[in-house]
Computed example of a mutant assay.
Amino acid sequence: MSYKKIASVMVSISVLVLTLIAGKVQAGELSADEVKSLMKQRFPSLNITLINDSQLPGFFAAEADGDLIYITKDGRYFIQGTAIDMEQRKNLNREQTTAWNNLKSPMRKEDIAKLNDKDMVIFKAPNEKHVITVFTDIDCGYCRKLHKERQDYLDRGITIRYLAFPRAGLQSSAAKKLEGIWCSKDRQTAMTNAKLKQKFSKASCENPIAEHMRLVRKFGLGGTPSIVLENGNLIGGYQPAEILAQNLDSMKAVKQAAK
Rank of each mutant, 00 (worst) to 15 (best):
I79S: 00
A64I: 06
T224A: 04
E95A: 10
L234C: 03
F200S: 12
F135R: 09
F135V: 08
P225K: 01
S12T: 11
E149Q: 15
F78E: 04
L248Q: 10
S184G: 07
V134N: 04
A64T: 02
F165L: 13
K129F: 03
N231M: 07
D111G: 02
V228Q: 03
Y142D: 11
A194C: 05
R89C: 00
C183H: 06
K40P: 09
L18C: 12
K36F: 12
S173E: 08
K104Y: 11
R217M: 09
K36A: 15
D111A: 14
C205K: 12
M191D: 07
I84C: 01
F219N: 10
L18N: 15
K118N: 10
L103R: 14
W100N: 13
I122P: 00
E149A: 15
V134M: 11
I79L: 02
V131I: 09
F78I: 04
K176D: 09
I138K: 11
L68M: 08
G81C: 01
K124Y: 00
Q246P: 01
T49F: 00
Y162S: 12
C183R: 07
A27P: 14
I138L: 08
K118S: 14
T189M: 04
A64S: 10
A61C: 02
M251T: 09
R42N: 13
D155Y: 09
G58K: 01
M1A: 14
V25H: 14
G220F: 01
L92F: 06
F43G: 04
I227L: 09
Y142F: 15
T82L: 03
K176H: 08
V254E: 14
L234R: 06
T192Q: 12
T136I: 11
A245R: 11
P44Q: 08
N47R: 05
S173R: 08
R150N: 13
I79N: 01
L115H: 02
A164W: 09
S250Y: 11
N101S: 13
V228K: 02
S173Y: 03
